[in-house]
Design a protein around this nucleic acid. Structure first.
Lengths: 192, 192
DNA sequence: AGAATTTCTTAATCTAGGTTAAGGATTTTG
DNA sequence: CAAAATCCTTAACCTAGATTAAGAAATTCT
């Protein structure tokens, strides 16, 4: 497993010297995940943020009635963590697990902050990544307020054509905010 | 009007020399807003981000049926902008206006980036502000997926006790995602 | 202060989407 | 490969919250 994908991602926003990128790499921990394996569970502290190299992860909560609600899918080239827990280093309420066998790099909050101090360009990199995530998250809030379930489903299909193919419908339902039964009903209507 | 509130906010996260803070202040533009005055409208580019010193602003969209959906309230000590448009400098789809007579400082994206280069500590300040906004936005996504309207209303009352007092109910309804009629019904039930 | 506008409430009716239940299709596991 | 588990679909029925309409209360404007 190589860190090419991650370094390429970083190079879109900042440029690093050989030394800097070696130092950064020295802080990463490689981890292989089997399908359904967790990297974080409720009430744990998210020590690290994960960069997905292959496979796919998801973050979600489980409500009082036992239903999943999916906050994020992370296909390759994405970062994922329980942001609340990661930045506060307090216990969170989110689960993160692998949807398929996956490879990730983990970076601890402690090391991240250390890198911010040693290599200020990383402050910029993560500032930009976080800005982009905020835009995506706010769009999702607006979509939840202003779109019907059917609009949200079609929007999802357009934005994430790759995910549509590899995700069970259950999980798409848990992301757009409907029951699997209702998603099934919506899909039947489209066909006609 | 003084920039004390803003400098105090900044000092919670980073420390600045006299020169640095003078330079930063030189880039701010003061602006007084009358109630209902816009700083951004749909299809415009959000050149600036606004820091609220007094009063209160809101960001929202208007859907095809003419209904408002409120994304954010910004009481004093908060930043507000159309994040998508601000970071991409492309036209956005959000309105931002003053709920009460307000005073704000405006910082253009161009000047912000200039400051990031001259004073790297600001990269850290905005990275932290953006991280916190992302946590809040993701919590709101989860609440939309897993809570009932009534739970979202009570949550809002607890989190923003100050806003409850000065906002018309219409606007609280447009934030939590229900009609004003249904909010009225929920409030009646609570009394009994 | 009085007219005009906006906001809030109530109540009847409606609907998008949930719930329950059951059978069939797929996938996973031993 | 068969058994078990998970996933998907369908259909009948149910409910949280929307819609419509109309009057009362509060604000804003002249």
């Amino acid at each position: 497993m190589s860190s090419d994908l991650l370094l390429h991602n970083i190079s879109k926003y900042i440029s690093l010297s050989e030394d800097e990128s070696a130092y950064f790499k020295s802080k990463l921990r490689e981890r292989k995940l089997k399908k359904k394996q967790f990297i974080i569970q409720e009430n744990q502290v998210s020590e690290s943020v994960a960069f997905v190299v292959s496979g796919c992860l998801r973050s979600y909560t489980i409500d009082d009635n036992g239903f999943d609600h999916i906050l994020q899918f992370a296909p390759p080239d994405w970062w994922i963590t329980d942001m609340f827990s990661f930045i506060s280093q307090k216990p969170g309420n989110i689960y993160i697990d692998a949807i398929d066998d996956s490879n990730v790099y983990l970076l601890s909050r402690k090391d991240q902050i250390d890198i911010f101090e040693k290599i200020p360009a990383f402050e910029k990199y993560f500032r930009i990544i976080t800005e982009n995530s905020l835009v995506a998250s706010r769009k999702r809030v607006m979509d939840g307020l202003s779109l019907t379930a059917s609009d949200r489903y079609h929007d999802f299909c357009q934005r994430y054509p790759t995910l549509i193919e590899c995700l069970p419908q259950k999980q798409i339902a848990a992301y757009i905010g409907v029951t699997p039964e209702f998603l099934s009903k919506m899909r039947r209507k489209v066909k006609k």
